[in-house]
């Protein structure tokens, strides 16, 4: 984890370009979003949280369910 975090920090601190607003077309593409299908992502995260001992990450934890 330390190596991965270090790598990503290095990308951010050393590799950032100044990207003008009119140059951000690619970044707003559907395939560049953090989640491409919200309904599918919600279900997928719910399944993992129900079947594994850990959860969370993409935001604050929400309400629970009795999923066994």
């Amino acid at each position: 984890m330390k190596y991965l975090t270090g790598l990503l920090l290095a990308i951010v601190l050393c590799g950032c370009e100044t990207v003008q607003p009119w140059e951000r077309g690619i970044l707003s593409k559907d395939e560049m979003q953090w989640q491409s299908n919200v309904m599918e992502s919600r279900l997928r995260n719910q399944v993992y949280a129900s079947k594994e001992g850990s959860s969370g990450g993409p935001g604050a934890a929400g309400g629970g369910c009795g999923c066994n």
Binding site: W34, Q35, V38, M39, S41, R42, N45, Q46, G56, G57, P58, G59, A60, A61, G62, G63
Partner: peptide
């Protein structure tokens, strides 16, 4: 549509 996992 964020709720259970708020999207940032």
């Amino acid at each position: 549509t964020s709720s259970a996992f708020l999207l940032p």
